[in-house]
Design a protein around this nucleic acid. Structure first.
Length: 655
DNA sequence: TTCCGGTAGGATG
DNA sequence: AGCGTCATCCTACCGGAA
């Protein structure tokens, strides 16, 4: 494929041009890079791989999205446009009214942080191209390596091709945390409430220091950077602006080891914004950039303002607000506030396999890690999400929301196993677990005993009491108080909750549904599992919950009732099994379950094996229908979202 | 009907 | 040969409750 000299611009002779990676967009230290060469190498190294195929799928999906939006744009009549222009103008005025030029924000960004720290502890690396990371993924590259096009988020083996002398250093988070803490001590002297955005980035409100010390921001910023250097031996770059969104953009301008100031002056801001490429804005990534460019010919932030009517017509209100705000150069100026954690997760990548024993082992590890992490922060969670990445890089998530919070690795594993089991057989390259819906959510279901699900009815004893107990076991207070791990008030509850099926005194219940859930027992690749129906003979009706979803709320999951008619005849197929044939009955229920799962699997396969185009159409069709029905105004099908909060709200203040 | 909670997928840094 | 980890937010969609 040595066709680089070719002058033809047709994409067929230069296939790499259509492979859109993120490695070629402007980044500090990448100015002199031969972008075409980088793109070609990346393409050559990726071509034909599963990863590449998945990227192509994603790309096709994005193109489809763009086409859709184009069609929607074309559908807008002049009358529509003037209508939306009025709405947009109103919104522009409202947002403009919120402009606050009284604050001075500073964004500090450490230069090639991990790489710089590594060089500090091993000075022989100085001046040599180096990357922190592994052959499969690079976290940071130093500036020498960046000259070759090597950069963060690039797989190491590709970086090697771009820069054969590249030195790899493994990541060492302890070290980075140590140095990060040193920088934060410096930040604290200038703004005790500074917001740490990551180990190497922070936002500081400099308004007060400047006033108190009667000193210009430029001077304080120089001083701060000096102090960071003195404390750590590391350089950083800084941006100063009246809001965080702009400050972040500014810190990138004179990187490395530089600073840039944008005055608190509306005219200056508008000038600055006018030529600023949208991609420089935090929150606008590859996909959004593409959509804005290809559908609306928007390249700069100024263009955003010109096209505001389209946002009001075709995007959600929050997305429209975000775009318009960016066009006005607005961003977060408010004081930081503590935000509680929303979720906690861990995931592991491995070489793709179908080995279910291996999956189980991974789940055990992940459950234990997650449980330990939750314990460290005194959290209990109600929603468990299993994340899978198939051998073909397709990402799937499967979630389950429980009645009461859990934390123990045993509980996590139990539910995670159920979720995974429903996906088997499958070839995976990643498994992850996420816990969310923490007990600090004041309005969680725990405090709402009126909200009942199936499980309430089949709980042993008085489930009402149980729920009250749940509440009293200081579940609600966990958010702010540390729970002594040795005294775990929830563990018992959890046990109750999960043994729903066993020794369930149905006769005590006047519940209308005399039923038992066939709770699939713990995931067991060996198939040695024991069955929960054993030892009971009062089953009158068995819910085969194929979704294994405790709340049973998902519409796509069907439940089919297996009833032993006259207590001996299967309602689904008519086979006869007397009540005493417990094991046989269990096997029979399992048979129906497996049958159903297989059918679902097959239909899923049929869907997956459709040509991509058709799948898109199906997806579009579905979205299109509901759009007409439910959301006539906003949200184009597959509407883009923009995390508006990214710059208007605080990052957690984790010092 | 509308609102809300739950699930799934995606974008971003 | 081979493309990570973690957290957050957003949208779509569905179904049940108010």
């Amino acid at each position: 494929m040595e066709k680089s000299e070719e002058t033809s611009s047709s994409s067929s002779s230069r296939p790499w041009e259509s492979y859109h990676t993120v490695y070629t967009n402007a980044k500090a230290g990448m100015d002199g890079v031969d972008k075409e060469k980088v793109q070609r190498v990346v393409y050559e190294m990726s071509k034909g791989s599963k990863y590449f195929e998945n990227e192509e799928r994603k790309e096709a999906y994005m193109k489809q999205k763009i086409e859709n939006m184009r069609a929607q744009r074309a559908n807008l009549k002049p009358a529509d446009l003037s209508h939306y222009q009025r709405i947009a103008d109103k919104r522009i005025a409202e947002l403009e009214a919120t402009r606050d030029l009284t604050r001075t924000w500073l964004h500090v960004d450490m230069d090639a942080f991990y790489a710089a720290v590594e060089t500090l502890s091993n000075p022989s690396l100085k001046g040599r191209p180096m990357a922190v990371g592994t052959m499969s993924m690079i976290s940071t590259a130093n500036y020498e390596a960046r000259k070759f096009g090597v950069r963060a988020a690039m797989p190491g083996f590709i970086a090697c091709k771009l820069c054969p002398e590249l030195i790899f250093v493994p990541t060492d988070f302890k070290k980075y945390t140590y140095y990060s803490d040193l920088t934060r001590k410096v930040f604290q002297e200038y703004d005790p409430n500074f917001m740490a955005a990551s180990l190497d980035e922070a936002y500081l409100d400099m308004t007060n220091v400047c006033k108190e010390r009667d000193i210009t921001v430029a001077e304080v910023t120089e001083e701060l950077r000096q102090n960071v250097y003195k404390a750590t031996g590391l350089t950083c770059s800084a941006g100063v602006a009246p809001n965080r969104l702009l400050a972040k953009v500014c810190s990138d301008i004179n990187k490395p080891n530089g600073q840039f100031l944008l005055p608190n002056d509306r005219a200056a801001i508008m000038t600055f914004i006018s030529s600023l490429p949208i991609r420089k804005i935090g929150g606008i990534g590859k996909v959004t950039e593409h959509i804005l460019k290809d559908v609306f010919e928007i390249k700069t932030c100024e263009d955003l303002l010109q096209k505001s009517s389209f946002f009001c017509a075709l995007f959600s209100p929050s997305s429209a607000d975000f775009f318009i705000s960016v066009g006005l150069g607005l961003g977060g100026t408010d004081a930081p506030q503590v935000r509680s954690r929303k979720s906690m997760s861990n995931e592991r990548t491995f070489s793709a396999t179908k080995d279910e024993t291996f999956f189980h082992q991974k789940l055990v590890e992940l459950s234990e890690m997650l449980s330990a992490d939750m314990e460290k922060e005194g959290l209990h969670g109600r929603t468990l999400t299993l994340k899978l990445k198939t051998a073909s890089f397709e990402v799937k998530t499967r979630a389950l929301t429980l009645q009461s919070s859990i934390r123990s690795s045993k509980d996590i594993l139990k539910h995670a196993s159920k979720l995974l089991k429903a996906e088997l057989p499958v070839s995976l390259r990643l498994i992850g677990l996420r816990m969310s819906h923490f007990n600090e959510d004041k309005d969680g279901t725990l405090s709402d005993p009126t909200q009942r699900t199936l499980l309430n009815y089949i709980k042993p004893g008085d489930d009402n009491t149980n729920l009250v107990d749940d509440e009293h076991s200081d579940v609600k207070d966990h958010c702010y108080t540390y729970t002594n791990p040795s005294r775990d008030p929830l563990s018992e509850l959890n046990d109750n909750n999960e043994q729903v099926v066993e020794d369930n005194g149905l006769e005590d219940h006047e519940c209308k549904d005399q039923l038992n859930a066939v709770k699939s027992s713990e995931f067991d690749p060996q198939g040695t599992e024991t069955h929960s129906l054993e030892g009971r003979n009062q089953d009158q009706l068995t819910m085969i919950d194929f979704s294994e979803n405790e709340t049973g709320s998902s519409s796509s999951h069907h439940k089919e009732a297996l009833i032993w008619l006259e207590d001996y005849k299967c309602s689904l197929c008519g086979v006869e099994l007397p009540p005493s044939f417990l094991e046989e009955r269990q096997e029979h229920a399992d048979f129906h379950l497996a049958e159903k799962m297989q059918m679902e699997e097959e239909s899923a396969h049929a869907y997956r094996n459709l040509p991509l185009k058709n799948r898109m159409r199906q997806k579009e069709a579905v979205v299109g229908q509901s759009k007409g029905r439910k959301r006539p105004k906003h949200s184009p099908s597959n509407g883009k979202h923009i995390p508006i909060d990214a710059f208007f709200s605080k990052a957690s203040h984790n010092l």
